[in-house]
Design a protein around this nucleic acid. Structure first.
Lengths: 125, 125
DNA sequence: ATATCCCTTGGAGTGCACTCTAAGTCAAGG
DNA sequence: CCTTGACTTAGAGTGCACTCCAAGGGATAT
């Protein structure tokens, strides 16, 4: 699979895919005879995982650390699990903060509904 | 209330508070005879609101637009409500994405638990 | 053969939201 | 009187995560 196809499939720009590779988030991708990237199954799986966790707000740094350990093999299982658990905690914290914001907005919006009704009634007098 | 006290109360740096004022997110704060900022009740209320929504990921731009309308008065009620509703939607979307990431991590973490147990058992043979 | 198009690279530029620096002012304490 | 420490300003710098640019290579379509 060439870079543009991968980009389309995951809705990630080609630039971003090359960037991920350059900073070591993706392993060097195989090339064809013309030097063009040919993404394989395992690349796609990693990209999908990265996309999911980036979408959840996990940092490039954490993801890179995880991927590096993944390449190092079985000896890093516990360390990898620790990273995932830490990131899980961070995501949960952020969700909690967002839920608080959401609740606040809901309260405000309800208040605005009342205010707008009141203002409209005043207009009619 | 002086800037350092406000900063401590809301866990926002003095730099950030001055920055918010400079970009028009906060109205110009009253000064004492020496030119030092004296934050009033309404400033504090706005800062608290800003802190809550920034924490939820609402952009400076959206908050600034909202605050500007707030200063313009009652005629902007509907417009303000629209901003809040839009931001509510954005927050909800981001929460959904994060929930997906969380689910993915939970799955992975459970998988790692199994893998680590398996690896330890292999070691003992 | 020439145009089109996607690919390549290294490096520069962008947007957001701060965060810091330098140089200076002012009130209070020793 | 002098030091200390919190405050002031304009403007520069930072970190993150892309995003774009210029210049060039190679396969395909007319």
């Amino acid at each position: 699979m060439k870079i543009a196809e991968v980009a389309q499939q995951f809705d990630i720009s080609s630039d971003t895919l090359r960037y991920y590779e350059r900073i070591g988030l993706l392993r060097p991708v195989a090339r064809n005879a013309s030097g063009i990237r040919e993404y394989g199954e395992s690349d796609l799986a990693r990209i999908e995982f990265i996309k999911c966790l980036r979408g959840a707000g996990v940092s490039i740094e954490a993801l890179t650390a995880y991927m590096r350990l993944l390449d190092e093999g079985d000896g890093t299982l516990a360390e990898r699990k620790a990273i995932l658990e830490q990131q899980r905690g961070l995501i949960q914290q952020r969700i909690d903060e967002m839920q608080a914001g959401l609740a606040r907005l809901d309260y405000k919006i309800a208040h605005y509904e009342d205010l707008i009704v009141a203002t409209e009634q005043k207009m009619q007098q």
